[in-house]
C-alpha cells in the first residue's frame, strides 16, 4: 500500500467522519444541554434534504442559499416541535420513555408529511457549481466537494466551540445544562433557551441533510437510516459531549476506511465492534458524558 493511496483513503474516511459528525452534532448538543434524546433528529436531516431540493430545483436557487434555507426550515420546525410538544413532558417521571415515544411519533408523522408533500420518487440534487471536479495531484484524486464538506465540518466545530465557550448565550446554555432551576431563579428564560437550543440542533440536522444530498439519494425513510449511526457516534463520544462526538466520528470514519481497504469482507461490522469494545470497558463512552439529571 503506497502513501498516495493512504492519503486518498484517509480523506475518504474524513468525508464520512465529517458527515457522521454533522448529523450527530445536533443530537449530542440537545442531549447535552437539554437532556432530550431526540430520536426524530434524522427526520430533520431528511427534511433539510427535501427543503434544499425544493429551493434549488423549483426556485432555481443557489445551492448554498438552499443549504441555509434547509437549516432555517429544519430549525423552525424543530422549535415548533419543542415548544408545542416536547416542552409538555419535561419533568415527568419516566420522562425518558415519554421522550422516546414522543420523538418516535414525530418520526412517523414527519415521514408521512414528507411523502404527502414530495411523493415517493427519488429526488436529485447536483453538486454546486465550482465543486463538481476534483483536486488531482499525481496519483491522488480528491473530489473538491468532499473537501468542502470536511471544511464545513471544521467550521461548525470552531463556531460551536466559540459560541459555547466565549459568548454569553453559550455560557447560559452550558449553565442551563448543569442546573436548570438555578438558572431560572437567576432570571434566565429557561424555556426559551431550551427552544432555541433545540432549534439550533435541528438546524444542524437540516444543514447536514442539505449538504449530504448531492452525495446521497433524497428518498423517504432517509431519516431512520442515519439515526442509528449518529447514535453510535453520540454514545461513543460520551452522550452530550460535543467534542467527544467529533473525535468518535473521526475514529469511526477512519477505522471504516482502513477496514474497507484491508479486510473488506468484515468492514461493515467494524463500527459495531468499536462500539461494543468501548462500551464493555467504558459504558459511558470514550469521553466523559455530561451528568444527566435523573430520568
Amino acid at each position: 500500500m503506497d502513501s498516495s493511496f493512504l492519503l486518498v483513503q484517509f480523506v475518504s474516511g474524513l468525508t464520512m467522519a465529517t458527515l457522521l459528525f454533522l448529523v450527530a452534532s445536533g443530537l449530542t448538543l440537545i442531549f447535552g444541554v437539554g437532556g432530550v434524546f431526540n430520536f426524530a433528529h434524522g427526520s430533520f436531516y431528511m427534511l433539510g434534504a427535501y427543503l434544499a431540493y425544493t429551493v434549488v430545483s423549483l426556485a432555481h436557487g443557489n445551492f448554498w442559499v438552499a443549504v441555509l434555507a434547509a437549516g432555517l426550515g429544519a430549525g423552525v420546525a424543530g422549535m415548533i416541535a419543542e415548544a408545542a410538544f416536547l416542552r409538555r413532558i419535561y419533568g415527568r417521571s419516566e420522562e425518558g420513555g415519554f421522550q422516546i415515544l414522543l420523538t418516535y411519533s414525530l418520526i412517523l408523522i414527519i415521514d408521512d408529511l414528507v411523502k404527502l408533500v414530495w411523493g415517493t420518487e427519488y429526488k436529485s440534487l447536483s453538486r454546486p457549481a465550482g465543486f463538481t471536479g476534483s483536486l488531482v495531484i499525481g496519483d491522488v484524486t480528491l473530489p473538491s466537494y468532499n473537501l468542502a464538506i470536511v471544511g464545513v465540518g471544521l467550521l461548525v466545530v470552531v463556531v460551536a466551540w466559540w459560541v459555547l465557550s466565549r459568548t454569553r448565550p453559550g455560557r447560559i446554555a452550558r449553565a442551563t445544562a448543569l442546573d436548570r432551576e438555578t438558572m431560572g431563579v437567576l432570571g434566565v428564560n429557561v424555556p426559551l433557551t431550551m427552544t432555541l437550543v433545540f432549534g439550533i440542533a435541528t438546524a444542524l440536522g437540516g444543514i447536514t441533510g442539505a449538504l449530504a444530498a448531492p452525495l446521497r439519494s433524497v428518498t423517504p425513510g432517509a431519516g431512520i437510516e442515519v439515526i442509528i449511526d449518529s447514535l453510535i457516534v453520540v454514545v461513543l463520544g460520551g452522550m452530550g459531549n460535543f467534542w467527544g462526538a467529533w473525535l468518535a466520528a473521526l475514529l469511526l470514519g477512519e477505522v471504516n476506511a482502513i477496514a474497507v481497504a484491508t479486510v473488506p469482507e468484515w468492514a461493515s461490522l467494524f463500527s459495531y465492534l468499536v462500539m461494543v469494545v468501548t462500551l464493555i470497558f467504558k459504558p459511558e463512552g470514550l469521553f466523559a458524558p455530561r451528568q444527566v439529571r435523573k430520568v
Binding site: F5, S12, Y122, L215, R216, A222, D229, V260
Partner: peptide, 29 residues
C-alpha cells in the same frame, strides 16, 4: 450512506470490470 472508502479502495484494486449488486438509492449514492 457513504461509499467513498469503498470507491477509493476499488480504484486501488484496478479491476477491469466492477459488478454492482446495489439497488435504488444505494446505486444513486
Amino acid at each position: 450512506p457513504d461509499y467513498t472508502a469503498f470507491i477509493t479502495s476499488i480504484i486501488k484494486d484496478k479491476p477491469d470490470i466492477l459488478i454492482s449488486g446495489l439497488w435504488g438509492g444505494d446505486t444513486v449514492a
